[in-house]
Structures are given as structure tokens and as C-alpha cells.
């Protein structure tokens, strides 16, 4: 009860600002009679949103975009982790592999996307590959940093116990890399949704990106805004799921929460 009150008090100002913003928007559109193909009123967006789900199968298209984003994200992240581990376990590989990774990263994926669609077709495969490409890099660099940036004293402690390379990986480098991994995943999941949309822009007949293009062509700007809403709901949901997983995995990394006293030294 107390917590609910605190939550409401904390959310009060943002809520007011939100209501004022939406109300102001609606008022300006009506007062100035702005054409609906330039900027739609919030009420028109809501109508388009509801109609989209009821008549235009937004849910089905969203599921496809989401599926492409998530599978590409998983594929790219897995590859990123695998390459990072390889490069750290066999340092000789780093000098060989890393330049290609950097070269790959400096090429904008938007520029490569059409080629990937040519190679892998209009179906989901090309989108999954584009998403995997954009997700890979943030995961790779973060995991590499995490595997390498281990505390010298901890290394010394393990060395004093004659730990093997494998033991150092298992007891120190892997767990040390976990917070870095999640930092990379948080970036990658956002990139993943963008990647899926870019892929659909280039060539697709399904998905939210495809619907946005259609809405733009037919100057149905209210529908485009409704689709932006669908996208941000998807992004926020994926991000929240990731945050929930992160909280469970990295429970030890949480700094003691404010107001909650640390255990005392003496009973």
C-alpha cells in the first residue's frame, strides 16, 4: 500500500506532463486544422491503432517482426560470445580476426541490407541475418572487454593456487564478463528491432516495416504513427524481458539499494 502510494507520487509528474503533451498536441491539430496526411491528431492515431489490430492483422505482422528480431538477436549474440571467447582463449586469433570484425562494423548495415535480401530472398532468412549482423558487434566488443578486464589481484590469487587457464576462465573471466555481456545485449536488442525494420523496408511482404512503407505510400500517416506505437511497445517489452533476466543473473552485481541497511558488522 505504502509502496503503491510512493509509486504514484513518483509517477505523478511524468503522468501530468504526458497528459498535457497529448492534450496540447490534439488541441493544436484541431485549432490550426493541420491536414491529417501531415501530422495526425492523437485521437486519429488511437483509432488507427485499434482498427489495425481489428482489421489489418497488426498482431500477425508484429509477431513476424518480433520473431525475426529475436532470432537474429540470439544468433548474433551467440556468435558474438563465441568469437569473443575464441579471441581471448587464443590471443593469436585476435590480430587475425579483429580487423575483419571492425571492417564489417564500419560498413553501415543499411547499405548491405539490399545485398543480403538479394542473396537470401524476401523471406525471414534475410531479416534474421541482417539482425544477427547488427547484434553481433555490441555483444562481441563488450564480452571481449569483460573477459579481459579482470582484476590483477584476483588473477594473482588464482595464480598463487596454480590455477590452469581453463580454471581462470571458469572462476574469473566468464563471471567477470557477465555484466559486460548484459550491457552488450541491452544495446543489441534495440539494434535488433531496428535491423528487422530495415530488412523489411528493403524487401518484404510481411511485418511492421512492410506495413509502415505501405502506410507511407498511401499517405495514411495515422496508421504509420500507430505502427510506431506497435514498434515501441515491442521494443520496451523485449527490453524489459532482458532487464528481468539481467536482474536474476546479476543479482550479486546490485549495489545495496538505498534505504535498505547493509548487514551490521557486529550483531
Amino acid at each position: 500500500m505504502n509502496a503503491l502510494l510512493r509509486w504514484m507520487r513518483r509517477q505523478f509528474v511524468p503522468l501530468i506532463v504526458f497528459v498535457l503533451f497529448i492534450g496540447g498536441w490534439e488541441a493544436i491539430i484541431r485549432a490550426l486544422q493541420v491536414e491529417s496526411f501531415l501530422v495526425p491528431a492523437p485521437s486519429a492515431v488511437i483509432v488507427a491503432f485499434v482498427r489495425g489490430f481489428a482489421q489489418a492483422n497488426y498482431l500477425g505482422h508484429a509477431a513476424i517482426t518480433c520473431f525475426q528480431a529475436v532470432s537474429g538477436f540470439l544468433l548474433g549474440s551467440a556468435l558474438g560470445i563465441a568469437i569473443a571467447v575464441m579471441v581471448v582463449v587464443f590471443p593469436a586469433l585476435e590480430r587475425i580476426v579483429y580487423p575483419y570484425i571492425v571492417a564489417l562494423q564500419t560498413v553501415p548495415k543499411v547499405a548491405v541490407a539490399p545485398l543480403i535480401v538479394v542473396w537470401f530472398g524476401f523471406g525471414m532468412e534475410s531479416k534474421v541475418i541482417i539482425v544477427a549482423l547488427v547484434s553481433l558487434f555490441p555483444v562481441l566488443v563488450n564480452v571481449m572487454a569483460g573477459l579481459k578486464s579482470v582484476d590483477q589481484d584476483r588473477l594473482d590469487l588464482l595464480a598463487s593456487l596454480s590455477a590452469s587457464r581453463w580454471q581462470i576462465l571458469r572462476f574469473l573471466r566468464f563471471p567477470n564478463a557477465l555484466p559486460f555481456l548484459f550491457a552488450g545485449l541491452n544495446t543489441a536488442i534495440v539494434f535488433a528491432v531496428i535491423g528487422a525494420i530495415v530488412g523489411e523496408f528493403v524487401g518484404a511482404n510481411r511485418g511492421i516495416g512492410f506495413l509502415i512503407l505501405q502506410a507511407n505510400f498511401s499517405l495514411d500517416i495515422a496508421a504509420a504513427f500507430a505502427l510506431f506505437m506497435v514498434l515501441s511497445i515491442m521494443g520496451v517489452t523485449l527490453h524489459s524481458i532482458l532487464q528481468a533476466i539481467q536482474r536474476r543473473v546479476l543479482f550479486w552485481n546490485r549495489t545495496v539499494e538505498a534505504g535498505q541497511p547493509a548487514p551490521r558488522d557486529t550483531p
Binding site: 589481484d153 584476483r154 594473482d156 590469487l157 596454480s162 572462476f171 563471471p175 550479486w252 552485481n253
Partner: peptide, 20 residues
């Protein structure tokens, strides 16, 4: 002539592993 298990070490900082 190398690390030995018959000596225990305490460093200046605790050097604990936070995930354990």
C-alpha cells in the same frame, strides 16, 4: 620455484569474487 599451496595469501584489498 612456482606457486605453492602451502602458503595462504591475504592482499591489501579483500579480493573476493562478488558472484560467489
Amino acid at each position: 620455484d612456482g606457486p605453492r599451496s602451502d602458503v595462504g595469501i591475504v592482499f591489501q584489498s579483500p579480493v573476493l569474487f562478488p558472484w560467489r
